[in-house]
Design a binder for these strands. Structure first.
Lengths: 142, 142, 142, 142
DNA sequence: GTGGTCTAGACCACA
DNA sequence: GTGGTCTAGACCACT
């Protein structure tokens, strides 16, 4: 029974997601953390099972109070996006997407339509959105 | 309950700008109102001389506290973008609003990022969104 | 326009729900608060639109730190059970139960079956549960 | 990977007690294990002399860290409810477990209250639950 | 006055 | 070592 060697072979242990806080944005730190983790999930940088940085670790990295990171993780857990395991760490949840393709499409449709009308009230067109989204996505891939 | 001057006599003089508030966006209502009026001015939906909805009228329409609308109008007046004329209404000033591309991009950025992370919490990826949005767009063109 | 009299006629303003914390239970304070509010909703003592006690008010009453109450309210808000309005208060959400009777029954069925099997693993029968639940409910009505 | 004594040679000697862990209950896993074993002893599903599953076996079955199971067994041994015999297994002690009505009621209380508040968050009332549970029960009797 | 955010620091529980 | 809870107290934002 090999102990030690086998323990250390966890290259994929905790993903680095390069969270950056902008203190001038007016968006609370804990919310910026949530947003960035959600976005990392949306574009595939974080997948189910991946471990997030530890609360204290991320707090040190971002130079914020551990409570602030804990609050972000806590909210993500309440929403079911991550699962914290005492003494072990915090992990991206296995999404139990029991939705059929049809249902998924329906939910996506609702979300997008709502967003389009919101953006429209600011004077943005669907074209604006698509353009930004595509650029944004390319950016993330570099 | 009619109080004071009838508001309905100027119904056709005040532009409807379709302000939509999103209580889940984290952006305070008064700021959402300001932003949307600014954007409407920037892209020509509101022109100098146009009358804004009355404070009370808009408050009822948006189902918020009249103070909230008043605060938005007040801040717009301080910035010189609108001018309130006692007993008459609130009007778009001559002073032009030039919203730079950069500013527009910033607002769009915030909106899109917020939406992406909301969609992520339902398990949708950026790709899903782009795909749907493009289809949706094509659909609209037919 | 009557001001003052009409403002003060808010007898039902904020519901008293008599939350009691048990420091010996091992259940964290914030969770006890959540549980008791949820139960008040379940047996009809709190209805949509009712205002909860203020964060500071409840904190004083329960002799805990305001942050502890805020945390409970916050979690309830994330779950969509209450809605906090800045500068105004915290209110029980209007549940948008768009579910058909059939769907409701389905969800209830899943919940109950899950619970029954959980209780069974502790050696309790459905009879035990019904008996306790009925007693508990009568208790609440006194 | 076979290490040490084969566990399968005593498969039919160790009682299956169907322990079910609920990660959302807030009760730590090790405590859920203890509670369920105690209840099984109290209502006769486990009798003196019966062998418990091996630590590793149960850990695999429940998909938890073996330390967690070990901790539960350890605590049960300290209380004298089970005795571990090196190289052989863990067995229910002669010492009787009398779980008083009061204790049983307490556990039931916790379970039910937790369930009621969970159901409340889906908009179900205590009445809904009682009604469904009674129907469900009748159903089962047919 | 309402709720919201953040810090600093202590102590506990789980693995 | 991990995450979880709670306090005390400061300061901000909305009504």
């Amino acid at each position: 029974m090999n102990v030690g060697v086998s323990e250390s072979s966890m290259a994929d242990k905790s993903k680095t997601i390069n969270i950056a806080l902008d203190p001038t944005s007016g968006i609370p730190f804990y919310r910026q953390i949530i947003l960035q983790i959600e976005m990392a999930m949306a574009d595939g940088r974080l997948k189910p099972g991946n471990q997030l940085p530890t609360v204290r670790g991320l707090a040190v990295e971002l130079r914020v109070n551990p409570n602030t990171v804990a609050r972000a993780y806590n909210e993500l857990e309440i929403r079911g996006l991550v699962s914290s395991q005492h003494g072990t760490g915090t992990f991206i949840s296995d999404r139990e997407v029991e939705m059929s393709e049809v249902e998924r499409e329906e939910v996506l449709s609702q979300l997008v339509r709502g967003f389009v009308s919101q953006a429209a009230s600011y004077g943005f067109t669907v074209d604006d959105i698509i353009r930004y989204l595509t650029d944004y996505h390319e950016e993330g891939r570099k």
